[in-house]
Amino acid sequence: MVDPELTTEAFEAARARGETRLRGPRAESAHYDAGRDRVIVRLTTGVEIGFAPRDAEGLAGATRENLAEIEVEALGLGIHFPRLDADLYVPALLEGVLGSKAWMAARLGASGGRVSGGAKAEAARRNGRHGGRPRKAATGGGS
């Protein structure tokens, strides 16, 4: 069934975007290097990129056996981990994006809370000179 909202212009724009993606680097092959704990993706340009599975959405905590099987899909625009039902988009990998926007935002927020240096450390020192964190007010319930 044809989408009645799909115009010729929209179709042509989508086709042009697809052609542009196919002109850029794509995955030629991919494998898991257990010795270095890295997923290695070889691109059509001959360049290889590698990343730790723990840094990619859907791969954290995966076993070597689950990472051993990787498929190149979508004309080299995607890599698929069938045992994990996880997919990564190659153009996004080239930009350092290893997951969805929500997943990346959650990781960024978590890492920000662990930062201990610079302004955060100075604020903690100033607060410590004033007796530290204020105690919570006692609630008036029961006793």
Rank of each mutant, 00 (worst) to 15 (best):
71 E>L: 09
14 A>H: 07
30 A>L: 10
87 D>G: 09
108 L>T: 15
51 F>T: 14
139 T>R: 13
18 G>T: 08
43 L>D: 01
28 E>S: 03
141 G>V: 14
19 E>W: 13
74 A>T: 10
104 M>C: 10
114 R>K: 13
106 A>K: 13
119 A>E: 12
63 T>V: 01
36 R>I: 10
84 L>K: 01
137 A>T: 15
93 L>W: 05
5 E>A: 09
4 P>H: 00
141 G>R: 15
6 L>R: 07
105 A>T: 12
96 G>D: 06
143 S>I: 11
127 N>Q: 15
18 G>D: 00
2 V>K: 07
84 L>H: 00
39 V>E: 07
2 V>Q: 10
85 D>A: 08
35 G>H: 01
36 R>M: 15
137 A>I: 11
63 T>M: 01
122 E>M: 02
90 V>D: 01
63 T>H: 02
102 A>Q: 05
6 L>M: 11
79 I>Q: 01
16 A>L: 12
64 R>W: 00
81 F>E: 05
79 I>F: 06
10 A>Q: 07
1 M>F: 12
17 R>V: 08
40 I>Y: 13
100 S>A: 09
122 E>V: 11
104 M>K: 05
5 E>P: 00
46 G>V: 02
100 S>I: 09
118 G>M: 03
105 A>K: 01
56 A>Y: 14
55 D>E: 11
13 A>P: 02
129 R>N: 06
31 H>N: 06
19 E>C: 11
126 R>G: 07
134 P>W: 09
108 L>S: 15
134 P>F: 12
74 A>N: 12
140 G>M: 05
114 R>D: 13
18 G>P: 00
123 A>N: 05
27 A>P: 04
101 K>N: 11
27 A>C: 03
37 D>V: 09
32 Y>F: 14
15 R>K: 14
111 S>E: 14
47 V>D: 10
106 A>E: 14
65 E>K: 05
65 E>H: 06
106 A>P: 04
127 N>H: 14
71 E>P: 01
116 S>A: 12
103 W>Q: 02
56 A>L: 03
61 G>E: 00
82 P>V: 07
109 G>Y: 15
58 G>A: 05
89 Y>Q: 06
16 A>T: 09
100 S>H: 09
117 G>N: 07
124 A>C: 04
16 A>F: 12
23 R>S: 05
134 P>V: 07
131 G>P: 09
113 G>S: 13
134 P>L: 13
113 G>A: 14
126 R>E: 13
121 A>C: 04
124 A>Q: 11
112 G>Y: 15
53 P>T: 09
20 T>M: 03
14 A>M: 06
17 R>D: 08
82 P>C: 03
50 G>I: 12
62 A>Y: 02
94 L>Q: 05
59 L>Q: 03
107 R>T: 01
33 D>A: 09
51 F>P: 13
123 A>K: 10
6 L>F: 09
35 G>I: 08
134 P>A: 13
16 A>N: 08
46 G>H: 00
19 E>Y: 12
115 V>N: 07
63 T>G: 04
50 G>P: 02
121 A>Y: 05
14 A>W: 11
21 R>N: 02
88 L>R: 08
94 L>P: 08
126 R>P: 06
67 L>Q: 05
73 E>C: 04
60 A>I: 02
7 T>Q: 04
58 G>L: 01
